[in-house]
Write a protein that binds this DNA or RNA. Structure first.
Lengths: 159, 159
DNA sequence: TATTGTTATACTCTATAACTATA
DNA sequence: TATAGTTATAGAGTATAACAATA
């Protein structure tokens, strides 16, 4: 039995790719867009974005979490985190209580509405991930997780 | 010999992830950002972005290429393609010659400057990819390519 | 001096709606 | 009617620079 040809060429057969498809970043970008745009649509009715849900998720599991910790975990700058947090506060999903021990820092807590939105978002994410990964074997899934993690953790420092 | 623990927990040890790290989209997004932001910096002196280089790459290998073909290949909407093309034309890297057979369509060609920028960008991309994937084994790299491709090609239709 | 949070601003990538010109 | 391209607009995610308040 012939193995099915699985490559990017099949999308536009007459196109000369000139090895562009050997660039890993291209495939990561395409798959990322696939995941993000579809999840955005599923979350739209909840008035949250994928990144906002990830923040709700961590704040729920770590009440009183600081923005600095979110910045470290997601590896994004503090002003970037702040933008998401500001939107979550504005929408009433999160509140910010200044810490009494260190008055520079604020602690984030979910509101009841935030908890509801998170619960519904988790279901949406579960469905979404199931749909997009249903054709992968268990081994492929675990290998993908492992290799992505290795890429992320072994990347040379930023500068 | 103990296997090194490779997971996302290690970045912020005291954080309760509550299974957020079982969401594939999170890891794809993080690795994507890693790739994109670093490549952007390397390409900055050439006045091109990662997506613009990908378009130069295909136009170079397929002289007279139409925007519609780019839209199909990258799986992005025509106005999105057009935005990149407009920037490339404005910067003098690409020219648009209307087709004589079908006057609706335009054909894209690289300028001499566009060819130069592409050549230098290809070197920058090669270095960048080598740097970020140097810790992966040959097998991990080929598996990653294969699984990402499978994800992309087996995704259920958009609607 | 160093850290936390914030504001202002800008850039990349993506989308939808609505249009023109051509087939 | 359908296709190729375009324009206008918006939104998600990211960054840097500069600042205030606190440690």
């Amino acid at each position: 039995m012939a193995t099915a040809v699985i490559n990017r060429q099949s999308v536009v057969p007459e196109l000369d790719l000139d090895d562009l498809d050997s660039v890993l970043g291209l495939h990561i970008g395409t798959v990322n867009t696939l995941f993000v745009t579809r999840l955005e649509k599923r979350l739209d009715t909840m008035s949250v974005t994928p990144k906002q849900v990830a923040i709700l998720w961590l704040v729920n599991a770590n009440p009183g979490l600081k923005q600095t910790d979110l910045s470290k975990f997601f590896q994004i700058e503090r002003p970037t985190v702040h933008q998401f947090v500001r939107q979550l506060i504005k929408n009433g999903f999160v509140v910010n209580e200044p810490s009494k021990l260190d008055r520079r820092a604020g602690g984030l807590w979910l509101t009841d509405e935030g908890r509801e939105v998170l619960a519904r978002s988790r279901l949406a994410i579960a469905e979404h991930e199931m749909e997009l990964t249903s054709k992968l074997t268990a081994r492929e899934k675990s290998e993908l997780f492992r290799i992505l993690m290795k890429l992320y953790l072994t990347a040379p420092a930023k500068d």
